[in-house]
């Protein structure tokens, strides 16, 4: 009797959802049914139809076109955020875990202090002190996620620091850097990978919250959060304007969460 590998179900659902969203975003880069800022006075607040898949908004702009382009920016911000955050956290986490002692204590105290601010507050502080611009949001979200990532990397490093193969590598005279890169890093990869995937879903959530508040990507570039904000005032007449970006966010988050959960089940249990 063959048993299905653990987490296959979640991985499949996650891959399909994320695949569709990414595909739409890629298509949106080259082609959209209508221009994202193309207005049509005749078709204001038109209900979804074959002409306008998700209807139109109060300026007669096609919601479907805006939703797929909005997704592209949200994904772009999320990926850059998580990439930057992973790089910083790897350095801090490996250092804290491997060096131990005073270095560990200093890094972790600072991380704890940053962590006592709620995430969105950190992002707000960074956005308010950096020069205004569409991409200020990336460093802001990046710093918001560094504490949790660093903790995870550090825990993973501690787990392997005194493992048999690391000690024997040390006996054979491997340098600390070599031990970290060749022996410890590959072992924390599975842990890091599922953290990254879940981190992407959190970054998407945070990005859409910030752009809802008007502190993310600046109009007229569409973003899911901002579209929801604009749709809020005429939701009674045109609920599709809010439901389309809203459910795009929800499906993307569900997709990444499923992927993360599947990876965790397959490689970490």
């Amino acid at each position: 009797m063959t048993r299905k590998k653990k987490g296959t179900e979640e991985l499949r659902i996650g891959a399909v959802l994320v695949g569709v969203i990414v595909l739409l975003a890629v298509i949106g880069t080259f082609w959209t049914p209508y221009g994202i800022n193309e207005m049509s006075a005749r078709d204001k607040l038109a209900a979804p139809s074959l002409l306008h898949l998700f209807g139109t908004d109060n300026m007669g702009r096609d919601v479907f076109s805006r939703a797929i382009v909005g997704g592209r920016f949200t994904l772009l911000v999320a990926v850059s955020t998580v990439a930057g955050c992973t790089a910083i956290s790897l350095v801090l986490g490996l250092l804290a875990g491997y060096a131990g002692g005073i270095v560990d204590e200093v890094i972790m105290r600072i991380i704890d202090a940053v962590n006592s601010f709620p995430g969105i507050l950190i992002a707000l502080v960074i956005v308010s002190i950096l020069p205004k611009g569409s991409y200020t949001i990336i460093p802001a979200l990046c710093i918001m996620f560094v504490p949790s990532f660093t903790r995870i990397v550090r825990t993973g490093t501690l787990q392997y620091k005194n493992a048999g193969f690391v000690r024997s590598a040390r006996v054979f005279g491997d340098s600390d850097l070599r031990i970290l890169l060749i022996h410890i890093f590959p072992n924390i990869m599975p842990l890091l990978l599922s953290t990254i995937v879940v981190g992407l879903s959190n970054a998407i959530l945070a990005e859409s919250s910030m752009s809802y508040l008007g502190l993310g990507i600046q109009p007229p570039t569409p973003s899911w959060g901002r579209m929801l904000y604009e749709a809020q005032s005429y939701i009674f007449n045109a609920p599709w304007c809010a439901l389309a970006p809203g459910f795009m966010i929800v499906l993307t988050i569900v997709g990444f969460n499923c992927l993360g959960e599947g990876l965790r089940k397959r490689y970490l249990t």
Partner: peptide
């Protein structure tokens, strides 16, 4: 998976 602001817009609606 539901951002709080989307949930509130739905509740409001």
């Amino acid at each position: 998976s539901f951002p709080e602001f989307f949930l509130s817009i739905l509740l409001m609606w």
